[in-house]
Design a protein around this nucleic acid. Structure first.
Lengths: 209, 209
DNA sequence: TTGTTTCATTGAGCACGCTCAGTGAGTATA
DNA sequence: TATACTCACTGAGCGTGCTCAATGAAACAA
């Protein structure tokens, strides 16, 4: 029963992959807007109807194409978080990974985030869940700093986390919007803003470089 | 020469107004996506081609429809800025006007800002110029606070301004994204974030309420 | 095997935003 | 007045993203 039924399911899964691979290739080669769903279907060797039988719309295809990579980028950032001692540098590092990815894939990332930020739907929900996790990590870093006595204990961790996320989105927005953003410049700006946010609450006499 | 030429020019200007008025009406009644350019043409009593002879694309029509109102809102906010003594309250007040407008016109404003934030073109440029002016006002408020000795003179005004703008965009983003945002809640969050940003640098013993 | 049901696949077709060659009234020139 | 030119206006038509009734192969039932 299972073995026989599998034939259809396997076929379906493979078709879905074929379409996704074609989409990835064409998006990378021609950009999002310049790639037509018809050309994706042709590249994948299926009819247009099949494309939309597997993915509800074009933006979902882009989301599926980028989601894995973005998750990977965040994961990598998390792995080497511990290398930094200053919690502000940990926060900076957390954002820089994504910033670098967004700069490298500016036009595709811009399209996805434009959608995810302002629209509703499963694709936006999935993306925003990733961002919620991201905020949780930031919150943990700030909480640790308070517990270690590096930060004044009267700060509201939740409010500071929101402030950090605001900075993150602000700088990420610039990475997506500017004409030829330089990672170094944007990182410097990010660092300045994060330090400005926290320096007033730092207890030990750590000075800015 | 002028008088006779005016006939054409006047006719053209009136046609443009007719189209813009029709667009305003239909956008308000049916939303941006649900309003077709054809229906705007019909409502205005002109052909579709005429619509695009006057406005390069649909989003420009929305921009023209909202730009005036948004400018008005900012102007009104500026007029009563002086009523607040605490500079943090001045900053909060600066944002609240726009937030209220965005909540009231959520779906249309979202569409315009989605475009202006991530796309290029004259419409986006015009909107971003408004935002640059907005940032200049904020910068002035912060600079004043430093000069008055309310803020530690070692703060970088430019960096703090960026931090404030980050908060502004963050909260405005929520006003545009959430399902039924409450102005009071969003204002409270904005105030918390602004106070958290500056409290560490405040010289006088002004306490939070 | 034969009949029945499920469901992945298909492409003609729809509605949309936007284009562009053609039209004719308005304007300047003789 | 007669003629040439300008330019606001027009809608048929194009290329999109996406839909949906129809098709037929795979899966199950007899």
């Amino acid at each position: 029963m299972n073995q026989t039924t599998n034939k259809r399911i396997q076929q379906k899964q493979q078709t879905a992959l074929l379409i996704l691979d074609a989409a990835k290739k064409l998006f990378a080669e021609q950009g999002f807007e310049n790639t037509t769903t018809r050309s994706i279907a042709t590249e994948a060797g299926v009819g247009i109807g099949t494309v939309f039988a597997h993915y509800p719309d074009k933006i979902t295809l882009l989301g599926q194409a980028l989601r894995g990579e973005i998750g990977q980028v965040v994961e990598n950032s998390l792995k080497i978080l511990g290398q930094h001692q200053e919690f502000t540098e940990q926060l900076v590092h957390l954002s820089v990974g994504l910033m670098a990815y967004y700069i490298k894939n500016q036009s595709l990332a811009r399209e996805l985030i434009k959608y995810a930020t302002f629209q509703k739907g499963p694709e936006a929900a999935a993306f925003n869940e990733q961002m919620t996790n991201f905020a949780l990590v930031a919150s943990g870093i700030i909480e640790q700093a308070v517990k270690k006595g590096v930060l004044d204990s009267q700060v509201q961790v939740s409010t500071m986390t929101k402030n950090y996320m605001a900075i993150h989105f602000f700088v990420v927005g610039q990475c997506l919007r500017l004409d030829a953003p330089q990672l170094e410049e944007q990182t410097t700006q990010l660092r300045e803003m994060v330090q400005a946010l926290f320096t007033g609450y730092c207890l030990r006499g750590k000075s800015l470089p």
